[in-house]
């Protein structure tokens, strides 16, 4: 564990708490892509099933339990509790276009052709693109509530912080995880546009609005 990874994980944790806070206080899931949230549940379940048979640490175990349970809870909030506030007509990205290729990629690129390893690769690939329905929705509506942009910023920061973590691990432990690194770089790159608007507008106190 190094500080980059720790702050990355904390940022990930914070993003979920911000999202929960947004839904609970506004009593609405407006502006949140259900598809992205459903993809995250898929990602967490596929990757963290190892918590039943592979012990890493108490930290690792608790985070996995938190990520799986909170992501399922968010789906419940969106589909049941605050269902009327979710508008599927603007959440139109075809998620199956993401899941299909990720299954294929996982079958080709994995560290071992076993069920848990292919599942792990699948979750890594899927996580790298899971934010696309959300970013697509943002692009489509052209604006976002400030709290939603803080959620995305925390999520993007988590990905960005994993990059110096890998560089650090390369020099301190001599390990490289090519699948995680390549997928992680792609994932972080997807946030570049968002971060540009976030830094130049939201952090200057303006509303998040995309140029028409």
């Amino acid at each position: 564990m190094n500080l980059f990874r720790l702050f990355g994980d904390l940022s990930h944790l914070a993003s979920i708490l911000i999202l929960l806070h947004k839904i609970q206080t506004t009593r609405s899931c407006r502006g949140i892509s259900f598809k992205t949230q459903a993809l995250y549940v898929t990602v967490f379940v596929a990757r963290y099933l190892d918590l039943f048979y592979d012990w890493v640490s108490l930290y690792n175990f608790s985070m996995k339990v938190f990520f799986i349970s909170s992501s399922i809870y968010i789906l419940y909030l969106m589909k049941v509790r605050f269902r009327p506030t979710h508008d599927p007509s603007i959440d139109t990205f075809r998620a199956e276009y993401l899941v299909g290729p990720c299954v294929v990629l996982a079958l080709i690129f994995n560290y071992k052709f076993t069920f848990p390893e292919v599942l792990w690769s699948f979750s890594i690939f899927l996580e790298s693109v899971a934010i696309l329905p959300q970013l697509f929705m943002l692009q489509r509506t052209g604006e976002a509530e400030t709290i939603t942009t803080h959620y995305l910023a925390a999520l993007g920061a988590y990905r960005a912080l994993y990059i110096p973590n890998w560089i650090y691990r390369y020099f301190s432990e001599g390990v490289v995880d090519p699948i995680a690194v390549i997928a992680g770089l792609v994932q972080t790159a997807l946030y570049v546009d968002f971060f540009y608007v976030y830094f130049t507008k939201v952090l200057q106190g303006q509303k998040f609005e995309l140029p028409a």
Binding site: D50, N60, Y111, W120, Y162, V175, D177, A180
Partner: peptide
């Protein structure tokens, strides 16, 4: 140096 990975990251 690519070593076998233990998947210890989240």
């Amino acid at each position: 140096a690519v070593k076998p990975v233990s998947h210890d990251e989240l």
